[in-house]
């Protein structure tokens, strides 16, 4: 590694420019770091209070650690289990455990303020009786402390909520490339960006270009882009969604895409179709899980009916959007 030229190093690991830029040196790209360092005057080392060898050793140490991080693979999640705590009134929750596997969608339903977000926070935090609810969340049978030694807990979980917005001054193409570069090699970036972009457009149902500014996207477009990005670029195997407004996006297909990427999805929602679409739904009342309902055949029929109704509403909305005058609702779709 150390005898590679600066060009070879930065082509393989573009991120190390973050470290190299700090030296305020015009590096000769065709030489190694060591050869470049040899060209430096004495005051370069004086300023840093470091010897030639110390600067060199520090760079080697940096390279080793940075390389290890870039090549690190994310832990696969086989299961996540929630163990009971207690509700707002201190009464223990009435279940033994809730175990979820990749490809499953769990809806969290309940009245506003009942504690849906709190459950999502417990999962994000990987609670170990150290949150107000006293719940415990175990991922792959491993406690939070054990996990710190292996990989970062926080990188296992992606979050999407109403309050999250794009804040960068970039267009869609630049933005997706920047994210993809975090995880895949240069050669794979373009294909991945295209896939996310096309998925986002199909989810939002509204065209936008790769040149569109991300902060200028509509609510629906930006949610669609966030979900597609989450499904294909983010490596976090668990996705927590807190009541995103559907803003005209095909939220069911969005969920299918997420679980198709072998993610585990927890979604707090008031949307009846989405709640029925989930494999299981957790009902929260007064801060506690009060019921866990698995979708049975009868509910599947109900889902089917609800989807039809939803389709008709979508159709109606599109007609209204396009300026039609509506004379009747029944029998249109």
């Amino acid at each position: 590694m150390m005898n590679k030229t600066i060009r070879e190093l930065t082509e393989q690991y573009p991120y190390i420019n973050i470290y190299l830029d700090d030296f305020d040196i015009n590096f000769d790209e065709n030489r190694s770091f060591e050869e470049n360092l040899k060209q430096q005057p004495d005051h370069f080392f004086e300023q840093r209070k470091m010897s030639f060898k110390e600067v060199l050793d520090e760079f080697e140490d940096y390279l080793d650690k940075a390389k290890a991080i870039l090549e690190e693979s994310i832990e696969n999640v086989d299961d996540i289990t929630i163990y009971p705590g207690k509700g707002k009134d201190g009464v223990p929750e009435p279940y033994e455990e809730i175990t979820v596997h990749p490809g499953e969608i769990i809806a969290i339903v309940g009245e506003t303020g009942s504690g849906k977000s709190r459950l999502l926070e417990d999962i994000e935090w990987q609670a170990e009786k150290d949150t107000p609810t006293g719940r415990t969340v175990i991922i792959n049978g491993m406690s939070k402390k054990e996990r710190r030694k292996t990989s970062g807990r926080q990188r296992l979980i992606a979050q999407l909520s109403q309050n999250m917005n794009f804040v960068l001054d970039m267009n869609v193409d630049e933005f997706l490339k920047m994210h993809a570069e975090c995880f895949v090699s240069q050669g794979e970036v373009e294909v991945l960006v295209k896939k996310v972009y096309e998925t986002a457009i199909s989810l939002s149902g509204e065209e936008f270009s790769l040149n569109s500014s991300i902060t200028g996207l509509s609510g629906g477009q930006s949610r669609a882009l966030m979900i597609a990005d989450c499904a294909y670029i983010s490596r976090a195997p668990i996705v927590l969604i807190d009541e995103i407004e559907n803003a005209g996006i095909d939220i069911q297909r969005a969920m299918k895409i997420l679980v198709g990427s072998e993610k585990i999805v927890f979604i707090a929602t008031h949307d009846p179709v989405l709640a029925l679409f989930a494999n299981k739904r957790i009902v929260i009342r007064n801060g506690a899980v009060s019921k866990i309902i698995e979708r049975n055949e009868e509910e599947e029929k109900a889902l089917h009916e609800a989807e039809k109704l939803y389709g008709r509403l979508l159709y109606l909305r599109n007609r209204i959007r396009s300026g039609e005058k509506i004379s009747q609702f029944g029998g249109m779709a």
Partner: peptide, 19 residues
Amino acid sequence: IVSQAEREVFYRRVQMANP
């Protein structure tokens, strides 16, 4: 208050500045 993607990019850059 930012997107998951922005969090992940920022995290990666902090990692690369301070591994």
